[in-house]
Computed example of a mutant assay.
Amino acid sequence: MLGMLKKYTIELCPEVNGKLTYNNLPFHNKTVTRSLTYNDDEIVEKCVTSLDGTFTFPAKSIKSRLPGNVLHETVIRQIIFTEFQDQELLIWFANQREIYTPEIFIQLMSNLEGELTNDEQVYEFENIEFSASPFRASSICLLK
């Protein structure tokens, strides 16, 4: 019962640092959008790429009592995209199933470098805690 009264810190997204290029030239003065969804609540933030194509978003966390409910399943959706040739181009998409950000996401999102001519790829990364459930991300960035 006491667990339902406690407020937990939900790490929606780590700090994001990225750089966008188009034909290897900086994709500057363009809007980048980050959409974070947790329990049907969405937070949308926007920034504009600098002259060298870089962009950044601060880490984002919220407080919630939901993780104290044994019936609650944590799912955080992270989407980062930009408009390109009248389409939404996916820079990053992942679902996070913990209230804390996996270390691999922190590492990857600290240096997202995307060439807009790249095809979107789906990546799988080892989940040390639950090896049967790897982390997945979709991106135009070359994730290593």
Rank of each mutant, 00 (worst) to 15 (best):
Q78K: 09
F81T: 12
R77K: 11
R77H: 05
I80S: 05
S61V: 08
V70L: 15
I79E: 00
T74M: 04
I80H: 01
P67L: 05
F55V: 06
I79K: 12
T54Q: 11
F81H: 07
N69G: 08
I62K: 10
T54W: 00
I79R: 13
P67Q: 04
L66G: 15
T54V: 04
L71H: 14
G68L: 06
I80P: 00
K60Y: 00
T56K: 10
R65H: 13
I80W: 00
E83P: 03
L66H: 15
G68S: 12
K60D: 04
F81G: 10
K63W: 00
A59L: 03
K63S: 06
A59G: 13
R65I: 08
F81W: 02
S64L: 05
S61R: 14
R77D: 04
F57Y: 02
S61F: 02
L66T: 15
I79H: 05
P58M: 09
I79W: 01
T74N: 07
S64M: 04
I62E: 02
S64E: 05
N69Q: 04
I76K: 15
V75A: 13
S64N: 09
F55T: 11
F55S: 10
S64Y: 02
T56P: 06
E73L: 06
R77I: 07
V75I: 08
P67D: 05
L66K: 15
V70R: 15
T56Y: 10
I80R: 01
L71P: 11
Q78N: 11
R77L: 05
F81D: 08
K63F: 00
K60L: 00
N69D: 06
R65N: 13
K60A: 07
I76E: 09
T82F: 05
V70N: 15
T82N: 10
I76C: 09
K63D: 01
E73G: 12
K63I: 01
K60N: 08
R65A: 11
E83S: 14
E83M: 07
Q78E: 07
T74L: 04
V70H: 14
L71A: 15
I76Y: 08
L66D: 15
I79V: 04
H72F: 00
V70I: 15
I62M: 03
E73Q: 14
E73R: 12
T74P: 03
K60R: 07
P58E: 13
V70T: 15
R77N: 07
R65C: 07
T82A: 11
Q78A: 09
N69K: 10
G68H: 05
T74Q: 06
V75H: 11
F55R: 09
T56R: 10
F81L: 11
I62R: 13
G68R: 13
I80N: 06
G68W: 01
K60T: 08
L66N: 15
E83V: 12
